[in-house]
Design a protein around this nucleic acid. Structure first.
Lengths: 204, 204
DNA sequence: GCAGACCTACCTACTGGTCGGTAGGTCGAG
DNA sequence: CTCGACCTACCGACCAGTAGGTAGGTCTGC
């Protein structure tokens, strides 16, 4: 997983963390291997001793981030809850993960923007099973009358945009609002709103 | 405004259109002046005869796009409608503009991702007045009992994410769904869903 | 003749990546 | 304990390629 604390980190891990930071902040093209190496405190050739190429480094860093995210969501998804409480659980888990890793949400968004095309992983293919399961879940619950009728895919798209955008665009939103969107109480308010908003839309 | 058709365009306009295309597709760093020049059918120094620098070109292209967007929304915003029909009008105008210019939505998103920091315009500052007016509008209508009670800013944030993300992330979403998100009937379905979704959330 | 649009040729800065080499540690053989 | 073989981690110097940008010349229409 993404190692956060500052102890006993191998150079490899330091590089990956710094790479995630740079790639998130200024994108793939905007990041030079020199930047990453400097952030770790080594030179570029030393970095390339640990990773064969820039693309390989990106690939590994992104994959680590993705598996982190999956791991974090797994519990909520696998839970045997049904109906609204399950949705609430998953929304909460997703939101909290993004809040804890808000820096890296921008990396995911960049990847989505470019369709994951030019670099490594096919994000859509990886997420597809999860997506399909969610669609099925909503369809079931709607047919059972537990939720109001909506197009399940459209509903998920809306949720996706509502949660992700808040974090990915936080540098921009900070200028639109009067407070830091990532401040604890702002996060709490956002979390509450999204939950309440979808509750009113779903629960009859 | 952004000139779409292919007649009587000055080289300047051709450059700006091609620049918007490239910047949207692969971002600022991912676009070279050679790419743009080649798209227009001239050489790079000739391009730099019309614009003093890459950044200046980006600035002008983006500003043109932004003023287009304002112009398009102005009618809907200035309308004297109140309540839900006004919201419907603005949502519709925004959605349709994005649909017509889906390519450029990705440019706006890139700008939001980077907080507009490193290039030219402070997007947030430009949009701020519009934002504040919208917040006030919702607050009024809620207090008047026309709309259900929500946090107006949170509501706008959700709408922002729900509409914009669909277009900006369409390359990614195409892999998640079974159809092209930008196909006419897919667009229609998205438009209907967003409208209906916010109607249920707002109209008591 | 002149001005604008365009070109080729060139510059510097920086990119990702390779090369050869070195400091320091670990190992097993004698 | 010592010696040499081997290893990982790191470095400076260098490479080819490309970036944005400039200088100076040519061509065309007024």
């Amino acid at each position: 997983m993404v190692v956060h604390a500052g102890e006993h980190l191998s150079t490899r891990d330091l590089i990956i963390n710094e790479a995630l930071h740079c790639f998130s902040e200024v994108g793939y093209d905007g990041t030079s291997l020199n930047d990453i190496a400097a952030g770790v405190g080594i030179r570029r050739p030393s970095l390339l001793h640990h990773f064969p190429s820039k693309e390989a480094l990106y690939h590994e860093a992104f994959e680590r981030l993705l598996s982190d995210w999956f791991e974090r969501l797994a519990g909520a998804i696998a839970s045997s809850e049904r109906g609204w409480s399950k949705v609430q659980l998953v929304i909460g888990a997703g939101f909290d993960f993004f809040a804890d890793n808000h820096e890296y949400v921008r990396l995911m968004r960049r990847e989505a923007l470019d369709g994951g095309a030019h670099l490594g992983i096919d994000l859509a293919a990886v997420l597809r099973p999860l997506w399909d399961r969610s669609v099925d879940f909503f369809r079931e619950q709607m047919e059972a009358g537990v939720f109001r009728q909506h197009d399940p895919e459209q509903l998920l798209l809306t949720g996706y945009g509502a949660i992700l955008s808040y974090f990915s665009d936080s540098p921009f939103l900070g200028g639109l609002l009067d407070e830091d969107p990532l401040a604890p109480d702002a996060l709490l308010r956002r979390r509450d709103h999204i939950t309440a908003f979808f509750r009113t839309a779903l629960v009859p």
